[in-house]
Design a protein around this nucleic acid. Structure first.
Lengths: 149, 149
DNA sequence: GTATTTGCAAAAGCTTTGCTGCAAC
DNA sequence: GTTGCAGCAAAGCTTTTGCAAATAC
């Protein structure tokens, strides 16, 4: 399991003003299983603050992103153009998206870390965000494809 | 320089019906310098076929994508949510996007290829598309940032 | 001649914005 | 008491879609 930051503590440490709405959303993101889009986060956050507005959700996501506290994913645009969010992990990892069944797998490996160091060094580039997404077929879906004529 | 496929030849080989509109767009993509979004491609393609419609551009892009002839990029959403397109290269490569000046750099390394093989093997995943994007500051912009208080 | 593709115009999907009043500190 | 934030509603940007007419083979 990848270790993730505690967003509320980190927000406080960073001096981010914690309104009830931000608290509601941050707790929602922290407890979210899987990767959720803004609309889903909004619906869940309303269980904690029934009046929280979509716009507030978007604005808070933007804030957390700027602070590098969450990562934004596209997940190969498997379901439209929306974005998905996850708490930043200690280790960089990549996402495997299956075009067949839509399942998302996460994967971390030292090779990825090595690649990151190599990029930073060779390009003299100061890396802030890194997003590696892979689309294809998971084992099960690849096997099914094979079976068809 | 990364070697890219000849799209028109490949389209013919794949039995893709080559209408004048598709020809116009394919030639445009092939000759494009840098990474262009759908709107820019449309404007350029109109120089070859003045009546080509936006919708045709989107439909053809979708077609070429399905055939794995072009890659779609987000380039860290540096300028809104549009997508950018490039002819598929022989070698996988990644994109470095500078949040300061907006410059996009391409980078290919054997470590990336190794990572790809490792992912496919460890996850038993059949990879079709791989998109590695990095956001941060290029050397010049990082130095400028440093200079400020 | 027939199946596919196009242009057009409209809609859809997701996100951002301007403004006024409210909340945090 | 100030400053910044939230809610609301509207607009924005990019992409998709339905359909009749045109085109490729």
């Amino acid at each position: 399991m990848l270790k993730r930051h505690d967003l509320l503590i980190e927000a406080a440490e960073r001096g981010i003003r914690l309104t009830v709405q931000r608290r509601a959303l941050i707790e929602t993101i922290q407890e979210a299983k899987g990767h959720l889009d803004a609309e889903s986060l909004w619906k869940l956050a309303r269980k904690r603050d029934p009046n929280i507005d979509r716009a507030t959700v978007y604005r808070t996501i933007e804030l957390l992103k700027r602070h590098g506290m969450i990562d934004e994913l596209d997940l190969m645009h498997l379901n439209g153009e929306k974005h998905y969010y996850e708490v930043k992990t200690q280790k960089d990892h990549l996402h495997l998206a299956c075009f067949g069944c839509g399942k998302i797998e996460e994967f971390a490996t030292p090779t990825f870390e090595r690649l990151k160091r190599e990029i930073a060094k060779k390009n003299e580039f100061s890396i802030q965000v890194m997003r590696l997404e892979i689309g294809g077929l998971c084992r099960r879906c690849a096997a099914q494809e094979e079976a068809l004529p």
